[in-house]
Write a protein that binds this DNA or RNA. Sequence first.
DNA 1: CTAGTTGCAAAGAGTTTGCATGGCG
DNA 2: CGCCATGCAAACTCTTTGCAACTAG
Lengths: 129, 129
Amino acid sequence: MKYKTKQKELILQFLKENKDKCLTVKEIKTNFDLKQIIIGQTTIYRYLSNLEEQGIISKYINNVDNSSSYQYITDDCHLHFHLKCIKCGKIIHLECLKLNDLEKHIIEKHDFKIDNFKTVIYGLCSKCK
Amino acid sequence: MKYKTKQKELILQFLKENKDKCLTVKEIKTNFDLKQIIIGQTTIYRYLSNLEEQGIISKYINNVDNSSSYQYITDDCHLHFHLKCIKCGKIIHLECLKLNDLEKHIIEKHDFKIDNFKTVIYGLCSKCK
DNA sequence: CTAGTTGCAAAGAGTTTGCATGGCG
DNA sequence: CGCCATGCAAACTCTTTGCAACTAG
């Protein structure tokens, strides 16, 4: 990834504009299709993998259909966990000291380093319960 | 699923014998192939979905290749979370009062009911750190 | 000009569906 | 004997790979 191209610029910009959402490759593709901007899905997959390796975005696995979602990482994301509702798919960014406690506890007592980006806590949100 | 068949019996038995493991469809299929017992993968998929709906087994998503694993649910599984190492794929069953605290806290303060079966905490295990 | 990047098409992998055959009750 | 379950093959979806054309530097 040595060259700067229009496609990469556009994809990154779109991810930044949707920091609060987890986007699938399909959603990203459709966004550009509608604007009549041609970006091959191959390019999207390749660039997203690259961004993930660089630690710029985070990849999530969707428990419903085994597809993947990607999300731009903001600094404050480092401090929180993600809750995802099994029913409606809503993602809740939870900032809570309890979770930092848990993280500390698990690394100290169980010798396991939690990855906040990969980890998604599944369950039912207030509406779907 | 009204009839009792040999295939169902064999699949369930195999899951029970491997309560401590998360099994993929491939692993289940291969197990029977080696024993020269013919069970179509379709049957395995269908029966596993059915068992999951009944709450007898739990389905996990593998972050590496987007495939699924299935595991027989034992009573004590209700009391713990699963940690999964991103590198080596090892699954650790963590029974810890801290987690029960967390569960209680999240439902009381954040109105979110955690699903212990679906939730997998990703990170690095002691060996891979 | 040179080498990295793109986009199409095709290949792969995991999963689901359609349908004729087979087996439970 | 009727209806459900099975297993094969084909369809489907998501993702990756091969390759010729394109383009940034």
